[in-house]
Write a protein that binds this DNA or RNA. Structure first.
Lengths: 246, 246
DNA sequence: TCGTTGATTGACTGGCCAGTCAATCCTAGG
DNA sequence: CCTAGGATTGACTGGCCAGTCAATCAACGA
């Protein structure tokens, strides 16, 4: 066979990545329907015909993009949940991580929101979508419950209302980042977001102490107060992490 | 001329309204591009050809829908701003009103968000869009500043960060309402949303006292603590309120 | 140098959909 | 009952775009 054959593969992978990255940007802004294959091809720097050398169809790209995003965010969440720290601190780490990732590329979350809002989940995507959403929701919810049990946050708040509010806030932040209107924007800080939960003074203070970055969880496992946390869902195959998708 | 001629006009108006209402629902879910005229026609209960009897084009419907939504929300905001109450209470009234309207029809806000996210503001819509966004933003911001000056909220918070956070929260709530995933959802209460601003205990308490509904401002003017409050913005023309759009 | 084989291009096709329009259906007024 | 004129329909057209494919390019091994 011609071509160096093994870095041939590498080139092919890079092309795929480039197409997926370009597609993420374009899909997030324009949605599936009004994104033309030619737009993606142009953004990725190749001719539209070539796109079909790498992907089955426009929908296939869409699904793969979404799947990568979901996989990435699930990993990040799981990392936070497994941290050695109080539930409130773990929540904080989660929020901090999400905001960091959203700042890096708000398109990813926006794309997910778009899919969630459409009535007909784009075919295949649907299958793992609900599953992912439940995992995310219940992980956060149980951190909230645990925080409350340990007196780290306002004992009055309903966990579902708090979780809903927290996600709403995060989603809103992502949208705000992509909105282009001539008003001063300042991305809300983690502390501000966590005000929603009504943290006690000491819990709030603890934030400045614990790991500043997602994923810098202290070394050891098994945390005494680590309540219910069994992943309810099918395992995500440990696919290579597309781009910086985590 | 045949037809009773004057309720002929009424029928025509009703049809228009019906089309606009149907279009709002469909556009919000699917976006401009993947909404077919036939979808709107079907949702409004008429044939697709007839839609063109009432509107120039699909884009014309889109623009009119958006304009009505913006007009409605501006009126509602201006009502709150003009209330006789402390700035914090007026903010609360605004938030309460928005949540009420979003609960009634989340599609409206979602549609606005969609437009804001798209790079190319849909032609004509663009003209009044930025203007509206600025009006909304700066009205809320000045209520925040006034609240701070009067010691009703945390004096530390940056007004831009707080305003950004408040809008993010509201946007997120609207999205949450349209998302259909199998997790328990509880719409966050006004009090929860306002936690973001860090209200003083007394300010928070004042919420249960003042007008529960947007626009039911207490009768009389001039309130001792009613500091600076000049409306910064252009007057809203009192156009007929398309549907329940306010 | 040539042959092989995958990468790449862009003209082309088929289907879908916005928008048109001739034909038909009402309803009121005469 | 008849007529006028707007309301309504749906077959039709033109354009756009997803997806195909024959032709060309390029690089490696022999």
């Amino acid at each position: 066979m011609p071509r160096s054959s093994e870095d041939n593969q590498r080139i092919k992978d890079e092309r795929r990545e480039a197409i997926l990255a370009a597609a993420t940007r374009v899909f997030a802004r324009r949605g599936l329907a009004s994104t033309k294959i030619a737009d993606i091809a142009h953004a990725a720097g190749l001719s539209h015909g070539l796109v079909y050398h790498y992907f089955e169809s426009k929908e296939a790209i869409y699904v793969e993009v979404i799947r990568d995003i979901l996989h990435g965010s699930r990993s990040a969440l799981d990392e936070c949940v497994a941290m050695e720290a109080s539930p409130f601190e773990r929540l904080a780490a989660f929020v901090r991580g999400v905001i960091a990732r959203v700042e890096e590329s708000p398109e990813r979350l926006l794309l997910v929101l778009q899919v969630m809002v459409q009535d007909e989940c784009s075919k295949g995507a649907c299958a793992f979508f609900d599953d992912h959403a439940k995992h995310l929701y219940f992980s956060v919810r149980s951190l909230i419950v645990a925080s409350r049990e340990q007196g780290l946050i306002d004992p009055e708040g309903d966990p579902d209302a708090l979780a809903t509010a927290l996600f709403a806030m995060i989603h809103g932040i992502a949208i705000g980042m992509l909105i282009d209107v001539p008003v001063p924007r300042r991305t809300p800080s983690v502390e501000l977001v966590l005000r929603l939960l009504g943290p006690t003074r000491s819990a709030a203070r603890s934030l400045s102490v614990v790991g500043k970055k997602v994923g810098v969880a202290p070394p050891e496992p098994s945390d005494a107060r680590n309540g219910r946390r069994g992943r309810t869902s099918t395992a995500p195959k440990p696919r290579r992490s597309r781009r910086e998708s985590a």
